[in-house]
Design a protein around this nucleic acid. Structure first.
Lengths: 334, 334
DNA sequence: ATTAGTGACTAATACGCATTAGGTTGACAC
DNA sequence: GTGTCAACCTAATGCGTATTAGTCACTAAT
């Protein structure tokens, strides 16, 4: 800016005013300064900006997962991609970190905020008993919880959530209509908010219809556990006629396990995957799946965060209910 | 630091010396200052650090892929996870951005460097005719090219590469030994350096053995194209007896397509996937696959970058040759 | 003719840290 | 008793930007 000022024959402050669209310079000068800045290829130093109180122009994203669990999950990359799209428009950077567990994640938030490294964060995988909202509130760090529970609102936090309960109800509806009475839900990680929501909803739907042979089993989302649980429940005396898997990977592994046991899909057992991806069309039969737009989910979350950074109020936003794509893995109960 | 200085009864400079392990303060004072800093929960402002010439304590990572291609690729998340592990030790942040194409990617590098947002970058998906190394050289932006060609070294760039040529040679060796003479390589994106390396190596190996019915077909890595190419080549008059897929997703889709056409794996056609993941054990038959440690790949790249940032020389480092895991999808040629 | 006001600009300061140039004290040698 | 040196510490400056407090010339109002 010093150089620009010299070349344009004005003071440094005038340059600042001109480039930031503030009053205090004539239109003519402003234009001249703009031209010079352009010629000199000037870009504002984010460090200096941050130092003089403008914020870091960066938002943080922490993924608390052991490295080897990261593998086959298409959800996060798509989510991040959607987040990016919105952030990039406003030239906001995305600071990304992978950590082992929630405690580490909290430590990262603390450090980032203390170091003025981020202006806000996006929180994923909310849990039923989650220390993070309290921490963020305490720090005053603007945040959007992705997939959070709509009830439990913290004053300063925005929440973007998908209606898992509604989706689960519609899936059960569909299966019930097909004559299924014995249903097993191979759920994801226990303790995750959306896992618990799905489990609760399934239980409620079962109660409502008087179904007693309906259960949920939590897993670690891995193909191994998906297959193991499938083998266990299908090996029982009154095996379920429908299986709901909390992700596509487990559904795939489950179908493989079922075939090995001599169960044919969907003749003997119907399968629904909670998460649609190319995988679902890569096995025979093609898997019926709940599809949601993860990229759009990311966009929505990012938009909420930018709104928060602009001083807007914390909000709770719902994204569209996941839609059931009926393919070949679901059919009438035997 | 001002507060710390006041509480400890010393000057601000003394605090700086004490906390940065520089000479100029007594051991006793240093300890006292440390204690006070601890009590006050002080964390250095990265913005201020960056401003006073210490660098941004951040490295950049740009992924140039259309949003919808990101889905099913386990490689990048694992890579990033490995990168993280090394960066986190040194409290370096990872600035992540997804863009549409290479031109945008270059623009991001320019901006980041001009804004002093990053100290270095990690470059992925190098191409045969790639503008990025030249740009990075020109900017003087420290960088590590991941998966780059070992030949084409730019003065300032480090390169971390896997020996695709060696791996391809060993795969062809194995298939040849099993009696395969007609081999099709369903390759990845044309123009990517490693794609071209694999194609060249396959051609060379074929020539060396006098095989004429060997070819590579480039794709966009998607399951759709993988299946389409599979159908096309298997539908020909003298169909190949072995298929090499450049990723796991296409291999899976290929196997499905082959079954539909009445080809049994591995009796009629052998299949090798270039990238191992849970997917390969999720179909019957389990897929033989080239396995490499993507997390370690990331670690290595990050280590090279930190070395570069410490003022070390640019180097070219090779990671271990991918190893062929023989499962059930490869067998003797019919 | 003085005052109040306004538009266009400059000078000065702050942000939080690192660093460099000084300053003071005490020990030691001559 | 003067000079030298080392150890320890303080004062001052700079990094690049935003902002606040002036300054100056000129116009409009009293």
């Amino acid at each position: 800016m010093k150089d620009i000022a010299r070349h344009a024959g004005v003071s440094q402050s005038a340059v600042s005013f001109a480039l930031n669209g503030r009053a205090g310079v004539s239109e003519e000068t402003r234009e001249r300064v703009r031209r010079v800045a352009e010629e000199l290829g000037w870009q504002p130093s984010t460090a200096a900006r941050a130092l003089s109180g403008e914020g870091a122009a960066t938002v943080g994203f922490v993924l608390a997962r052991p490295a080897d669990t990261l593998g086959v999950d298409s959800f996060f990359l798509q989510l991040v991609s959607g987040i990016q799209e919105v952030l990039a428009e406003r030239h906001l950077g995305l600071l990304f970190q992978v950590v082992e567990d929630i405690a580490d994640e909290c430590a990262v938030y603390r450090r980032w905020w203390a170091e003025h490294r981020v202006d806000g964060v996006l929180v994923v995988d909310p849990r039923t008993d989650d220390p993070r909202p309290d921490l963020l509130d305490e720090l005053g760090l603007p945040a959007v919880v992705i997939g959070g529970a709509p009830e439990e609102r913290h004053p300063g936090l925005s929440t973007v959530w998908a209606d898992d309960a509604g989706a689960m109800a519609s899936v059960v509806d569909g299966l019930y209509a097909l004559g299924h009475r014995r249903i097993v839900h191979i759920a994801g990680l226990a303790g995750l908010a959306h896992t618990e929501r799905r489990i609760r909803t399934l239980a409620a739907e079962a109660r409502r219809r008087g179904l007693t042979e309906v259960q949920s089993v939590t897993t670690d989302y891995s193909d191994a556990e998906g297959a193991a649980v499938t083998r266990r429940v299908l090996g029982g005396s009154a095996p379920p006629t429908a299986l709901i898997y909390d992700n596509d990977v487990m559904a795939l592994a489950g179908v493989a396990a079922a075939s090995e046991l001599g169960f044919s899909v969907p003749a003997d057992v119907s399968v629904v995957a909670w998460e649609d991806s190319a995988l679902c069309r890569m096995v025979k039969p093609w898997l019926s799946a709940l599809s949601r737009d993860s990229v759009e989910f990311g966009r929505t979350a990012a938009r909420e965060l930018t709104a928060l950074l602009d001083g807007g109020p914390a909000r709770t936003v719902r994204v569209p209910v996941p839609r059931l794509i009926e393919r070949d893995s679901t059919g009438a109960a035997r």
